[in-house]
């Protein structure tokens, strides 16, 4: 696998205060790599350092320490920007331009000719599902969701190899989110690498091959979701749903009943078994109480649980 993004000990300090300046560390010694054609999810609470990382990679701010290389070139090398695309968080564009004009302007910055510019702009506006009636209307009249779509289109104007997306689902309705999710998945199919920050964990969970979690500017976890679950001590939890029995009766027949989590729901009794080796014990107890088994399924620790778990930062592999 080819590494396309390589971040080594990247650190960013900001000076705060007017008279007595002191340093606040926004990003602390971040090191990670991203491979070609994978979707890399970058997670963290507000102020964790996600946007700072993206701004450093885009050279909008300069690192206090550390280096980063994209496609084998140092981030200070502007020519590398020919091969990447970037969607900033809450994008705002020249509001006196129409969507088509804005994309043509972006295309011009890559040295594309007038015919190519016009064709590329129309293709991308269709691809991000922006209604054609809005193509020639000034951006100042756009809703947040429409701006987000235009932002995605401009990030793809140069057919980049790597696309950096900062909160790509922000401001989109459920249909829009689904469309953008499909678009991102489609980009991976084309062999592009996606580096995306998002607060919407379900999207990260569905889309991403690799995930990194930042906490207070430090890398807390990195790896694929299975590795992360292992790091977080996820066991093979199983959920059993049964009818014809109740929680109190079943608890009486189960050894160490506090070990199991029993919840009465509309669809029946839900029993969470911490380890799959204990399934037989539960089923035997159910039979003894006259209950009927409805379903048995594994429970995976969600990314949200991992994201919220309060633990000291640990540097991943």
């Amino acid at each position: 696998m080819t590494t396309v993004i390589e971040i080594n000990n990247l650190t960013k300090d900001y000076d705060v205060g007017f008279w007595r300046k002191r340093k606040v560390r926004a990003l602390d010694d971040l090191s990670l790599t991203v491979n070609r054609a994978e979707i890399f999810g970058f997670l963290g609470a507000n102020g964790a350092g996600k946007t700072t990382t993206l701004k450093l990679l885009m050279r909008l701010i300069f690192p206090s320490a550390g280096t980063a290389r994209i496609l084998g070139r140092d981030i200070a090398d502007i020519s590398m920007h020919n091969r990447i695309g970037y969607l900033p968080e809450n994008p705002y564009f020249y509001d006196y331009l129409t969507a088509r004009e804005f994309l043509e302007f972006c295309s011009e910055l890559f040295g594309q000719g007038p015919i190519e510019r016009s064709k590329r702009a129309a293709d991308l506006l269709s691809r991000v599902s922006l209604d054609e009636r809005w193509w020639d209307i000034q951006v100042r009249k756009f809703s947040k969701g429409m701006l987000q779509r235009l932002g995605l289109a401009q990030a793809l104007i140069n057919d980049p190899e790597i696309v950096f997306l900062d909160e790509p689902m922000s401001g989109l309705d459920p249909v829009g989110r689904r469309e953008v999710r499909d678009l991102i998945a489609g980009l991976r199919q084309e062999g592009k690498t996606i580096f995306m920050c998002s607060h919407i964990l379900s999207d990260i969970e569905v889309l991403c091959d690799q995930v990194a979690i930042l906490k207070r500017g430090r890398l807390a976890h990195v790896g694929n979701l299975d590795e992360l679950r292992r790091q977080a001590g996820d066991r093979n939890r199983v959920e059993i749903v049964a009818t014809g029995s109740n929680a109190d009766t079943l608890r009486f027949h189960l050894p160490e009943s506090d070990y199991y989590q029993l919840t009465s729901t509309a669809s029946g009794l839900r029993i969470e078994v911490p380890d799959e080796k204990d399934i037989d014990e539960v089923i035997r107890a159910l039979r003894r109480t006259g209950g009927q088994l409805v379903s048995v399924q594994p429970v995976r620790q969600s990314l949200e649980e991992l994201f919220l778990c309060d633990r000291d930062p640990v540097i991943g592999p």
């Binding site: 701004k55 020919n82 990447i84 900033p88 705002y92 972006c106 910055l109």
Partner: peptide, 14 residues
């Protein structure tokens, strides 16, 4: 102020 500069400098513009 309007952060339009973010999209410009993400392109190969010095």
């Amino acid at each position: 102020e309007r952060r339009t500069i973010y999209t410009i400098f993400a392109k190969p513009v010095s």
